[in-house]
């Protein structure tokens, strides 16, 4: 190979690298702009009082304390259902169903269809089934259960993928040591898959936190402090939507609430990463 050809190659590589760097910088600009706008609009309204008080005057006064509590309750109900159900389904898919069998294909197809259903359809279903037919009404429970139906396929997919990543030699070693199947799942499979499962929780929570229409139909619009799971409770996304769309002069508080939602989402992500790391450390 001639020297100058090599030289040209490295030069074009360098140029390429610069272009890629530029695009990477542009991608970084998006979150910066987003957070910047929210900070400028919402920071003046943000304070300890804002986080601890219930909204008054349709959200123009007071804070978002009760809304925040409702959001966390809805999320807790959702995860409380999704985690055992989803993990069980993922384990069944990985451990007990033969790859390529009719059952496996049917399950995968069902999950794909469920995952592709638009969220508003889940909202209508949740309103009809949980709120009306089961008589739960507009409540935190209705909202959380509907959300659970919605994020279940997402979580199962994430959990399944991380379970399948477990190397086959672990399985062989467990069999060689005469470890029972459940023992293998509990002591080896789940701990090694924990970071991926944690990621599934983050993804599911992220989608749940972002949902507006679904929760407007199920968890409802009430801003009172929730007293039980049967009370209607407005979540942050619904609150932001209402302030931005239906309340005149609500844009400052909408931006401040959006900041809180953002911090909440990042917080859940950090928590999940930390949990994943701890459980991996414990198994090592």
């Amino acid at each position: 190979m001639r020297i100058d050809a090599l030289d040209r190659a490295t030069r074009s590589d360098r140029l390429h690298g610069r272009w890629m760097g530029l695009f990477a910088m542009l991608t970084l600009l998006v979150p910066l702009l987003l957070i910047g706008e929210l900070l400028v609009d919402g920071l003046p309204a943000l304070g300890a009082d804002f986080l601890l008080r219930a909204p008054t005057d349709a959200g123009l006064g007071g804070g978002i304390g009760s809304v925040l509590v409702s959001t966390l309750w809805v999320l807790a109900v959702c995860q409380g259902v999704v985690l055992p159900l989803g993990l069980g389904c993922a384990l069944f898919l990985v451990e007990h169903v033969r790859a390529g069998s009719r059952l496996e294909r049917a399950l995968q197809l069902t999950l794909d269809i469920l995952g592709g259903v638009p969220s508003i359809v889940f909202g209508l279903f949740g309103n009809r089934f949980f709120a009306v037919e089961l008589g739960l009404g507009f409540s935190i429970l209705s909202g959380g259960l509907t959300l659970a139906c919605m994020v279940l396929p997402l979580f199962i997919r994430a959990a399944e993928q991380s379970l399948r990543l477990c190397p086959d030699r672990y399985r062989s070693a467990a069999a060689a040591l005469a470890l029972s199947r459940w023992g293998f799942v509990r002591r080896i499979l789940l701990p090694t898959a924990a970071p991926g499962i944690a990621l599934g929780v983050v993804l599911a929570s992220g989608r749940a936190l972002a949902e507006t229409a679904v929760l407007l139909f199920t968890a409802g619009y009430v801003t009172r402090w929730p007293g039980s799971w049967f009370d209607s409770g407005r979540t942050l996304a619904v609150h932001i939507y209402d302030l931005a769309m239906n309340v005149s002069g609500g844009s400052t508080n909408a931006a401040a609430s959006a900041l809180v939602l953002l911090v909440l989402a990042i917080g859940i992500q950090a928590l999940a990463v930390a949990l994943g790391r701890i459980s991996r450390g414990a198994s090592a």
């Binding site: 349709a58 959200g59 507009f138 407007l216 409802g220 619009y221 009430v222 209402d242 239906n246 309340v247």
Partner: peptide
């Protein structure tokens, strides 16, 4: 959803003067 914010503040004041009463406003 246009009336819902107004109904919410009306309900808030009504609840304050009628202890034990709960008014749930739902927009849609």
């Amino acid at each position: 959803s246009t009336i819902a914010p107004l109904a919410t503040v009306l309900a808030e004041r009504f609840e304050a003067t009628h202890p034990g009463v709960k008014i749930d406003v739902q927009a849609g």
